[in-house]
């Protein structure tokens, strides 16, 4: 009985090794880099240096505001679209949802540059209006990510409850606020998580649309990368990681729509 019995769990081994090598160790390295100097000695100077600069504080504030604004605008625009597609007997609703997602199949940078060209053509210049143009670019990019989870939740809503509510004399807006909105909360939460953090950490859209006139957290990481300042880049990355972890803990107990990106196919 010396033969090792084949067990299917060993198949996870190559996957586990890959994830340790290229996900866990790199993250540990970022942590180590964030709190060491070029000579490898422990230091808090990266941290104090980052928060000591007013422009970095500004970057974090701007990222928060743009991230929050983008989330709200995308939800305000995407929610009715998803609701109408799910509940106003449209023809071929899934095909229309796919149409909303299809721009994502055009290369991201090309798509963003096309949006900038459209704004140029309409007389809106990113150099003169960096914040407005960046916001428009963000909404263009993240709207499909909102419509998809919202639509999935809406199609699962228990329609009899909505009918019961109006049969019992609730006005349409009461039905909406008391029944539809709470029932679609999982979709709203996953849509918001799909938009808020990625907006804060993106740098391509703000670069292309805002013509490098404004800086988000993503831009400052990219800038340190360009200059080869790994230790400073790492401290910003750690701050970003903390924000993401905070967001995950905050929404931990809320039911979410699973695997929103994977639903594309």
């Amino acid at each position: 009985m010396s033969r090792i019995k084949f067990s299917r769990k060993w198949l996870a081994l190559p996957y586990g090794i890959f994830m340790i090598l290229f996900v866990i160790i790199p993250l540990l390295l970022i942590l180590a880099y964030a709190f060491t100097d070029v000579d490898g000695h422990f230091t808090l100077e990266n941290l104090t240096g980052f928060f000591g600069s007013a422009s970095n504080i500004n970057t974090i504030l701007v990222s928060f505001i743009i991230g929050a604004l983008n989330t709200v605008i995308c939800l305000l625009l995407g929610y009715p679209v998803a609701y109408f597609l799910a509940h106003r007997d449209m023809k071929m609703p899934t095909a229309i949802v796919l149409l909303f997602i299809m721009p994502m199949w055009i290369n991201f940078v090309l798509r963003t540059a096309a949006t900038r060209d459209l704004l140029y053509w309409m007389g809106l210049n990113g150099g003169a209006h960096p914040y407005l143009c960046t916001m428009i670019g963000m909404v263009y990019n993240y709207l499909p990510f909102v419509i998809l989870p919202l639509y999935t939740t809406m199609t699962k809503l228990d329609y009899s409850q909505i009918e019961a509510s109006s049969d019992l004399g609730a006005r349409p807006w009461q039905t909406f606020v008391k029944i539809v909105l709470p029932m679609s909360a999982p979709g709203i939460v996953s849509a918001a998580t799909m938009v808020f953090m990625p907006t804060m950490s993106s740098y391509v859209i703000s670069d292309v649309m805002g013509e490098r006139k404004l800086s988000l957290i993503g831009n400052s990481i990219q800038l340190y990368f360009d200059q080869g300042l790994w230790h400073m880049g790492s401290i910003v990355a750690v701050i970003m990681l903390l924000l993401i972890a905070f967001g995950m803990v905050a929404t931990k107990n809320v039911q979410k729509e699973e695997n929103v990106r994977g639903n594309m196919w």
Partner: peptide, 24 residues
């Protein structure tokens, strides 16, 4: 453990993943 590790690149900001690989 393995499912948790799988979630990291999904939840993480892409730029943090990118920087972590660069540093590696």
């Amino acid at each position: 453990a393995l499912e948790g590790v799988s979630q990291i690149p999904i939840m993480n900001a892409e730029i943090v993943t990118a920087l972590s690989l660069t540093i590696l």
